[in-house]
Design a protein around this nucleic acid. Structure first.
Lengths: 115, 115
DNA sequence: CCCAATAGTATCTTTTTGTATACTATAGCA
DNA sequence: TGCTATAGTATACAAAAAGATACTATTGGG
């Protein structure tokens, strides 16, 4: 490790992943490719329209995803992860891997308390 | 990428890094080793005692850092990153690297707007 | 006796996030 | 004519995170 804390850019990456639902949204876009608004909404159960809209707008703002509007009625809007956005996937994967281990770690800790 | 969104553990890792100051605190502990409370406070300018305490407690709770109290007056408390905590450093590094590129990306985008 | 130093707590306020619910426009269809 | 579908907005509210500020205990030193 040789990150100078003063010059640290971790927060810049963190800021993009933080926000309820953002990782899940990205994973669906990475896994299933282009998705409509309504498809995402169905994929992420419990999310409200407002939240989905907000998270998508923020990801779009950072060029992580692309939004394409089809001028038709009823409306059709598609979201696709950009090439740039795909560069986040090693981070997502590393976090997922670590998170999996951590879940185990916590479970073992909880068991030790019981015994 | 092959993370099943439903089984996603990204949030578990994310939750540990999220919290204002946490990445910086970790970087200082990784860089300078064991640190006293007051040293950390001096290292992280702008942080309040309450925030520093809170972040440290949360990191301790997850076994990322260890807290050692010396029973003396004035008090002395040392914080050290655990071996387990060190396993986060690849993630920190990946984020820092991505964040550095992203900062550049945003700068270039801003410049395009001006020209 | 009084002060500085350390590692905190305790309160209160502000800001940021997230939730719930209702509302909109309009083409196609029965 | 009224209903459905889609991708949102608008508004109000609740909860969580962060910030500002004041307070505490104790002891060695002057």
């Amino acid at each position: 490790m040789d990150i100078e804390p003063d010059l640290c850019r971790v927060e810049d990456a963190l800021g993009i992943l933080v926000g309820k639902w953002k990782p899940i949204i990205l994973l669906y876009l990475l896994k299933d490719g282009t998705q409509r608004f309504s498809e995402l909404k169905r994929s992420v159960p419990g999310i409200t329209q407002k939240m989905l809209t907000k998270q998508l707008r923020e990801l779009e703002e950072e060029d992580i995803i692309e939004r394409v509007v089809y001028p038709q009625v009823p409306p059709k809007v598609e979201y696709t992860i950009t090439e740039y956005g795909k560069s986040l996937s090693p981070i997502l994967e590393a976090m997922h891997e670590w998170g999996t281990k951590h879940t185990l770690h916590k479970r073992q800790k909880a068991n030790r308390k019981i015994l």
